[in-house]
Simulated assay, not measured.
Amino acid sequence: MAWFSKLIHDDRVLLGYLAINTVACLWGIHVLLRKWRDEAEIKPAQPKTQYITQETEDALKLGTLDTLLGHYNYSIRETAAKIVCDRAVNDRETVDMLLWGITRPDYEERLKNLRALAIITDPRESPANRALRLGPGCAGADLRLTARKDSLERLHRWKAYAALVRCLELSLDPEQEVLDNEDWDEYPLRDMTEKLCLMFISQLLNCYDAEKLVKAKFVEKWLAKQNWGKTREERLRNFLQYLRCRANRITDIIVCIRGTRSGREALEAAGLLPPSTPTDSDPEDNIPLIERFNVLLPANIDVNNLREDDPARVLIRSLQAVQSVEEQRMRHRHREAMVLNDGSHPVNSDDIIQRAESPL
Rank of each mutant, 00 (worst) to 15 (best):
W3A: 13
K6W: 11
I8M: 07
D10M: 05
D10S: 12
G16T: 02
T22N: 07
L26M: 08
H30G: 12
R37S: 07
A40M: 14
E41F: 13
T49Q: 07
Q50A: 09
Y51V: 15
I52G: 02
T53D: 05
T56E: 15
D58T: 15
G63E: 13
L65T: 03
D66V: 14
T67A: 14
T67E: 08
L69R: 10
S75G: 07
E78F: 13
T79M: 15
A80L: 03
K82V: 07
V89F: 02
V89I: 15
V95C: 04
D96G: 02
L99I: 04
G101P: 00
R104K: 14
R104S: 14
P105E: 09
E109I: 12
R110N: 01
K112V: 01
R115G: 04
A116S: 09
A118L: 12
I119Y: 02
I120H: 00
P123W: 00
S126T: 14
S126R: 11
N129V: 10
R130M: 15
L132Q: 08
P136Q: 06
A141V: 13
A141W: 01
L145V: 02
R148T: 13
H156S: 06
R157E: 10
R157C: 10
A160G: 00
Y161S: 00
A163F: 04
L168K: 02
S171M: 04
L172T: 02
L172C: 02
P174I: 11
P174A: 03
Q176C: 09
L179W: 01
D180K: 09
E182N: 08
D183E: 11
D185H: 04
D185M: 03
E186K: 02
L189F: 13
R190K: 12
D191S: 14
T193K: 01
L196S: 03
C197R: 00
L205A: 11
C207Y: 15
Y208M: 06
Y208E: 09
D209M: 04
D209K: 07
K212N: 08
V214I: 05
K217C: 11
K221I: 05
W222M: 04
L223H: 02
K225I: 01
W228K: 02
K230D: 13
T231A: 05
E234W: 03
R235K: 08
L240V: 02
Q241N: 15
Q241W: 06
Q241V: 10
Q241D: 13
C245Q: 07
I250Q: 05
T251P: 01
T251D: 01
I254A: 00
C256P: 01
I257P: 01
I257N: 00
G263E: 04
G263S: 04
E265L: 10
L267Q: 03
L267F: 05
S276E: 09
T277R: 11
T279G: 09
S281F: 03
P283E: 04
P283T: 03
I287S: 01
F293H: 11
N300C: 05
I301T: 04
V303H: 11
N304F: 10
R313M: 08
I316D: 03
Q320N: 14
Q323T: 01
S324C: 10
V325W: 07
Q328P: 01
H332M: 12
S349G: 05
A356K: 14
S358Y: 12
L360D: 15
